[in-house]
Design a protein around this nucleic acid. Sequence first.
DNA 1: CATGGGATTGACT
DNA 2: GTCAATCCCATGC
Length: 192
Amino acid sequence: MLASSDLDREFYERPVEEVARDLIGCTIAHGGASGVIVETEGYHESEPACHAYVGQTVRNEVLFGPAGHVYVYRSYGIHSLVNFVTGPEGEGAAVLIRALEPCDGIDLMRERRGVERVEDLCSGPGKLTEALAIGLGLNGTDIENGSLEVTGRASEPAVVTAPRIGISKAVELPWRFCSAGSRFVSRPRPAV
DNA sequence: CATGGGATTGACT
DNA sequence: GTCAATCCCATGC
């Protein structure tokens, strides 16, 4: 059990891999739609795959800010990717939300995404931001006081750990967390 | 000031 | 399996 009231600043101030694991099974809502988080990845300034690795810049300053804030950035000029900042202030670390199991507002998601299959609506970091209408405007906002809402879960789901995806450095760190057996995680699916 | 490289996706061979 | 689309901004001259 993880009550919504437990998802406070203190929750996000813990080590990034713990936050990444605990977010699996929680619900994220924005723009009239919501979904259960089924896949996350942790990033930390100490490893080269993280944006914060090069030190604080204008682009990534949110990563170094207080925990519990949202870091959104544009990838490949097309997609917005969402992260939750973790760890103490001054430390660059965040959890990338990679996939959701659609819950509410599914028709709205279909409209935004232009696809029908529920499995295709949020099964990737760029897809879920489009489905929930998450844009760069949310960058730097506080989860507890913003338009993006995160709620808890009734029980602890089975979680599998896997290497991260789509990066060329520090690929070996097992900081990808997936809800075991979920049809909604992005590919390649990890073995259960 | 010019350049280059992405924490991706979808369309095409 | 391969590849282009396309924006932000860090880095280097």
